[in-house]
Amino acid sequence: MPVVTRSMPPWWEGNATEPTVALIFRDFVRPGNTVFDVGAFVGDMSFILSRLTGPKGNVVSFEANASTLPQLTENMKSNICNNVFIVNRAIGRKSGHYVNLDSPDLNPAASRVVNYNLGYVPGGIETLALDDFVRETSIVPDFCKLDIEGAEYDAFCGFERTLSLYRTPLVFEHEVGHDDALTFVRELGYETFCSTHYTPVHSSADLLEGSTIRNIVAVHKSRIRETIFGEIDGSRHSRTFKASDANSFEQKGETIFEYNIPTEGGRFVVEAIWGDIDFNSSYMFLETLINNTIIGKYYVDQPTFLTNCRDISLSARSGDQVAVRIGAVSSIGFRAPDSLVLTQVGGIKPRAHTFV
């Protein structure tokens, strides 16, 4: 298995990775907190969590794929993330078993469990139930992020005691159409929401039509008022921008359409909509900029973009200059979306923009 060598931006630069999840981190995580990052990969999210929890906080980064550990370790060291502790285990429903991983060469972040074994197998990764980790270390998370490529349900089965006792808020990746993890946490008394649109999610049917992967925020019913979901007043105000509202330009082989968006501050959801897909691109991207600084970015292949990355959330303060850029690389016939819909989620107060 090849060693993963993807580095991260240095600590003095912004980190625009997974923007909607990063914004949820800023909503929930406070200095001094302890956070579990389950499925840390090379540490993009651990880096953000390290800065948010601060020197008196802790981040426990669980990563099963041994090929990513050297880069994960180096990224944490070079970015001075001294409060991050790395655990090389596959999180599952029971401890002490062994699994094999299928790790695509072109996308090692998508490593999946393919075999589950009761005993040791060559090349296998030992499993760890989070309840066992909490019991053995007395480390209790104030917040937990999980992104383990479809193994979230097994992780929750091994986390049930802790979740029932401490009612830890969660954000986890959800495969649309596979509701076992979603149902599990709801049966523990959690309310679940789309991390991008801030709307209730009872099943996959409540998610953006056509999407295949979403991130879900889960908050126990008893703690809703402590969170942004207790701030939401139910109002939503939308404004639609047409293709003609965009400024277009070419830059380093990219075709870019930029929208300058006046706002009075608050929480916003941006969604790009095309009626017909009559263009072809190697990659597409969606960027949000505040005061000329990129604060969120998706950069993926066209099919992934059109299913899962054409909507994004952002927080802006009154007086901020907000822009949205939609672009394509190596494209044929790429054009601006037929409409760009900006929706303000009523009640949520603006948050700061930086992570450092």
Rank of each mutant, 00 (worst) to 15 (best):
L289D: 03
T293Y: 07
G296C: 09
Y283V: 12
G275I: 09
T293L: 10
N291K: 07
L289K: 07
I273P: 05
L286A: 01
F279T: 10
I294K: 08
E271R: 11
D301H: 09
E287V: 10
N292W: 04
V269I: 12
I290N: 09
E271F: 04
T288W: 02
S281N: 11
N280E: 15
I294N: 04
N291F: 01
K297E: 13
G296V: 01
K297R: 15
D276R: 14
D301E: 12
Q302P: 05
S281T: 15
G275Y: 10
N280M: 10
K297T: 09
V300R: 06
D276P: 07
F268H: 01
T293P: 01
Y283L: 12
I273V: 14
I290W: 00
M284R: 06
V270L: 07
D278F: 08
L289W: 04
S281V: 15
G296P: 02
Y299W: 10
I294V: 15
P303S: 04
V300N: 08
I294G: 03
M284D: 07
V300G: 02
K297L: 11
V269N: 00
G296K: 03
Y298R: 03
W274F: 09
L289I: 08
P303F: 00
W274D: 08
T293H: 08
E287Y: 03
I290H: 00
Q302W: 05
F279K: 09
D276S: 12
F285M: 10
G275P: 06
M284A: 08
A272D: 03
N280W: 10
T288C: 08
I273M: 09
P303C: 03
I290K: 01
N280G: 10
D276Y: 07
Y298M: 04
E271Q: 13
N280Q: 13
G275Q: 13
F279R: 09
F268L: 06
L289R: 05
L286D: 00
E271P: 00
L286Q: 00
N291I: 05
I290D: 02
